[in-house]
Simulated scan of single mutants.
Amino acid sequence: MKKIISRYYFFVAILLIIADQFFIRLVLHSDLAAGLSDFSYYFSDMILNFLVVLLALVAMIWSGKWQQINSRKFKWSYLFYFFLALLAFFVWNFVTFFIFPSTQNEISYQLDLPTFTGLTAFLMYFFYPVIAGPIFEEMIYRGLVMTALEKGKKWGLDVLASAALFGILHISNHGWVLTDFFVYMGGGLIMAVFFRVTKSIYWSIGLHIVDNAIAQILPLLF
């Protein structure tokens, strides 16, 4: 099995991306999920994403790709790039706020937010967007995608594919709006470049968590 995954790693990655992008949505929009409570629905979404990420982790470990992105080394230059990436996010969000309309994903989230109570509120306002979501997305769209496309690295294919798929992920469930795609692809580009520079999934996850945490906290302050 390990040899098969190593040999066909690229195709395994494609299957896992399809599962993450489309299969989970098919399940959640099926009659099976129609009768679920809000908490059960969103918790099921998180568990399905977790299973895909778990399979991606197994594929990366068995293929030897995980060892390439599993570095826990600290470098001061990485910290500098970390704050530089945060600044890039601030500039990108500032620019897109004025030139693009609010994304459908953001509008849908803001409409649903007042209906969240109890555990659902904790899950959807904090745990999923700030902790689970960034870990899941970085494992798939930086870890899996960019290691699967490392042969195209000199042309930047790993970075572009990672950013494009990240953009598609965030619009496919709420309407295919081109400006929305550019908003999320821009963020994906920043994270993909940062991941390329650090070669560590942990730095990438940390950046994503901090950026999402700031996005969740700022509306509470203003």
Rank of each mutant, 00 (worst) to 15 (best):
142 R>S: 02
57 L>V: 14
179 T>K: 09
63 S>R: 06
165 L>S: 01
214 I>G: 05
217 I>W: 03
9 Y>M: 04
177 V>K: 10
117 T>D: 12
139 M>C: 11
143 G>T: 06
63 S>P: 14
153 K>Y: 04
80 F>N: 02
219 P>A: 03
82 F>T: 00
152 G>I: 01
136 F>R: 11
152 G>V: 07
214 I>N: 06
202 Y>G: 12
2 K>P: 07
211 D>W: 11
53 V>A: 10
6 S>T: 14
143 G>K: 04
129 P>M: 04
153 K>W: 05
166 F>L: 07
133 G>T: 00
102 S>N: 12
98 F>K: 14
61 I>L: 12
29 H>I: 08
71 S>R: 09
133 G>M: 02
10 F>T: 14
93 N>Y: 01
30 S>Y: 05
42 Y>D: 08
150 E>L: 10
158 D>G: 01
166 F>T: 04
187 G>I: 05
152 G>M: 01
103 T>G: 11
41 Y>Q: 07
170 H>W: 09
37 S>E: 01
203 W>S: 02
74 F>W: 11
216 Q>R: 14
210 V>C: 03
87 L>H: 05
151 K>M: 08
125 Y>I: 15
128 Y>W: 07
46 M>T: 13
134 P>A: 00
37 S>R: 00
191 M>K: 09
22 F>W: 10
22 F>L: 12
31 D>Y: 10
104 Q>P: 13
207 L>K: 04
120 T>F: 07
181 F>I: 03
211 D>H: 13
113 L>D: 13
68 Q>W: 12
108 S>Y: 09
217 I>Y: 02
94 F>Y: 12
210 V>P: 06
194 F>N: 01
90 F>T: 12
30 S>M: 03
199 K>C: 11
209 I>Q: 11
167 G>I: 03
30 S>V: 00
108 S>H: 09
163 A>L: 05
181 F>M: 02
14 I>K: 02
167 G>S: 02
151 K>N: 11
116 F>W: 14
43 F>T: 13
19 A>Q: 05
95 V>H: 11
205 I>E: 03
18 I>D: 09
122 F>S: 15
106 E>Q: 10
91 V>H: 10
84 L>P: 05
190 I>T: 00
197 V>F: 12
69 I>C: 05
213 A>C: 00
3 K>T: 13
155 W>Y: 14
82 F>R: 00
143 G>R: 07
